[in-house]
């Protein structure tokens, strides 16, 4: 069973994504969820859940922030809200939240998503014992290792399109810098700033700040569209599309391509040629100035020391 998840940046976009065949909508609010295209109000969250359910689809809400004491105190009321509104799953990255959800009143089936530190199927099996129903593989895991991760007792979610976060600091790294050089600058995601490596002028790592700190993203967005057949063949069938850096109808159009791929695989009609064709189409919708690559997917495990 292939599951296609996609982030949404508005109720409207969520509707379009559902209408075009996405299985699960991934939304959340900034106070508890990390690196979301949009911070949904409670009312909007309720509306997305209702619309998705009316169409037989699911909603996962991001509650994957690193939580400090204050947030640990306020998060239970959010869990209650989500439960009352029938959210299907949440994503979790903080162990304290898992501790809270040992209380049945708060428990919501959750996807363990601690980003960089989910790299081995045995870790996933560990979180399964505490109520996880899925886990998100770190983007730094090559395909060869992902296949082994598929042995886990839970479905492993793989990012197949979108931005990869490679650094989260609680510090205001941009604001600190601009203070130092005495320049006033917008440091939000909308400002759309990039870093380049000292020895790589052509690199472009997105960077921004929000209430969860400073976030830096990989040089290019990940695109595994041509490899979906291989993923499906090894039972890695939970696929996420992240629209943090691709907005509006373009993202919906990209989602449609993945839906088409999913249907082809289900029908046994997938081919490399179809993968290549869909991939060409995807490149038309992907923002022109942002690159695409396969990240760590094709690396040999020993290429990373």
């Amino acid at each position: 069973m292939i599951e296609l998840l996609a982030t949404a940046e508005s109720f409207e976009q969520a509707k379009h994504l559902i209408d075009c065949g996405v299985d699960t909508i991934y939304i959340g609010e900034e106070a508890y969820g990390l690196r979301l295209p949009y911070s949904f109000s409670r009312e909007e969250q309720r509306a997305v859940i209702a619309y998705a359910h009316a169409h037989g689809r699911k909603v996962t809400v991001a509650v994957n922030a690193i939580l400090h004491n204050e947030q640990i105190k306020t998060v239970p009321s959010y869990l209650t809200f989500l439960k009352e509104n029938g959210v299907d799953r949440i994503s979790v990255g903080d162990t304290g939240l898992i501790q809270l959800m040992k209380q049945p009143d708060y428990y919501i089936p959750f996807i363990y998503d601690a980003e960089t530190i989910v790299t081995n199927h045995r870790q996933v099996d560990f979180w399964a014992k505490f109520g996880a129903v899925g886990a998100v593989a770190a983007r730094e895991v090559p395909f060869e290792e992902l296949q082994m991760m598929a042995k886990a007792s839970l479905p492993i979610e793989v990012l197949v399109y979108g931005a990869t976060c490679i650094h989260q600091s609680k510090r205001k790294l941009m604001r600190n810098y601009f203070n130092f050089i005495e320049k006033s600058e917008d440091v939000s995601r909308q400002r759309d700033l990039f870093l380049s490596e000292p020895k790589g002028d052509d690199t472009h790592y997105s960077i921004y700040e929000d209430c969860n700190g400073t976030h830096i993203f990989a040089n290019n967005e990940l695109n595994l569209l041509p490899y979906l057949g291989q993923l499906a063949a090894v039972n890695l069938t939970t696929w996420k599309l992240d629209g943090l850096y691709c907005s509006g109808e373009s993202f919906v159009s990209i989602a449609k391509l993945f839906v088409e791929a999913r249907e082809a695989i289900k029908a046994g009609l997938w081919s490399e040629a179809l993968g290549a064709q869909l991939d060409r189409a995807l490149r038309r919708f992907h923002p022109a100035k942002r690159g695409l690559d396969t990240g760590f997917f094709l690396l040999k495990p020993d290429q990373v020391k």
Binding site: A114, E115, T116, A138, I166, H167, Q168, F296
Partner: peptide
């Protein structure tokens, strides 16, 4: 946040 940085990997 320790553990939440893969700048070096990338």
């Amino acid at each position: 946040y320790s553990g939440r940085c893969t700048l070096s990997n990338h």
